[in-house]
Nucleic acid binder design. Sequence first.
RNA 1: GGAGAAAUGGCAGAGUGGUCGAAUGCGGCAGUCUUGAAAACUGUUGAGGGUCACACCUCCGGGGGUUCGAAUCCCUCUUUCUCCGCCA
Length: 423
Amino acid sequence: MLQVPFIRDNKDLVIERLAKRNIDAAEDINQVVALDEARRGLQTKLDNALAEGNKLSKEIGGLFKSGDIDKANVLKEKTSQLKVDSKELTEALNNTTSALNELLYKLPNVPNKLVPSGNTEDDNEVVFKEGDIPILDDDALPHWELAKKYDIIDFELGNKITGAGFPVYKGKGAKLQRALITYFLDKNTEAGYTEFQLPHLVNEASGLGTGQLPDKEGQMYHVAADNLYLIPTAEVPGTNIFRDVVVNEIDLPIAITGYTPCFRREAGSYGAHVRGLNRLHQFDKVEIIRVEHPTKSYEALNGMVAHVKTILQELKLPYRILRLCGGDLGFTSALTYDFEVFSTAQDRWLEISSVSNFETFQANRLKLRFKNSEGKNELAHTLNGSSLALPRVLAGILENYQTKDGILVPEVLQPYTGFKIIN
RNA sequence: GGAGAAAUGGCAGAGUGGUCGAAUGCGGCAGUCUUGAAAACUGUUGAGGGUCACACCUCCGGGGGUUCGAAUCCCUCUUUCUCCGCCA
């Protein structure tokens, strides 16, 4: 959620930047400013009424003590009108505040100046490209065929047990997946991230905290009996660690990593590109999360990008990095870099990581602050990224490492798998 | 799942209707003493909002109620602990 004081002071900039997302926010922004002014006016009036009431109560207390009941009763009369007033003011204040919040919840984050304008993923800007795209035989197979051929992933079995999008990994497939998870976690902890094991279900407050609720309600699986949501990403439990927290400035930055399964309903996304591992309802992901000082967050974002790069370099996978355009930028993000790995047999790029700086957008909802050098509480910046999303990395490995004799295991993973080839 | 108890400042722990935002201890901070440190002693120290700074408002697990006035009384929810049952 955007900060009202920031909107107040930078009205034109906010409107101009939000235009990168192809939205005309002028009306909403003006309304935010107006509602905020009304809110503050009501708050002052209410505070004054309450102060008056407090004063009278104290006087009445004193009069009762000294036995001056008549005078006390006169003052009591006076308080009744005050009570009516403050009740009305409270109601008006609540109405104004919720109207303001409703509006604020609807407004996405203000894009960073680097964000290119554009509508669709075609307008994303390729900022980096690395790795050779292997030249495969004519009879090279897409990963879902390979999965069947070597009996390492069973899509139909998942279908039977649960439904489409819940594959079953078997034998060397399961082992390779586990090897990747461990490898990613090791890389992350080596880079200074502390490993966490987090809950896979979250409550409503956590969903609100990271911005999945209220706007993306339909994308999460909901456990109605207990009003809990299955996490769509470790970002939700991971970032909510810091909900309602004031950290010390010297404790920044905070860097954590965690492996979790992720559950996404993916309502409405059917079509040509959802085969095999490309789009699942349940998948595994290792996430990195940072809490940063506002002056350091973009440096940190670059650091996260560099970190993910080293992993892909070690895996020797061809990949590219995109700077997301305004139209493709997530609701809560100010700047996002997507990593895509080239899926040779499908002849297309697959998104395997998304690294974002949310600046204070999440921190504002979360009330995640740090005590600055002046002793004042200030909102921290939050960032997160995938390192990495498993299924598509797996798809990339299977397709790019296929040979006539089988699928080779990338060298860095061999200590983790204990085998060099899947055949 | 059943029965009972509890939730107060960084922590421990008083406080059952009126100068209580809250005793006391520990911790923190500052000082005295000391070559330095420790100990001892003295002072200081809850949080959030608001203000240039004050004023002022809010907060004793969450929400609601009674009252001129609630940490204190009532309702409700949540969480924790103890005992019993079940159990990976």
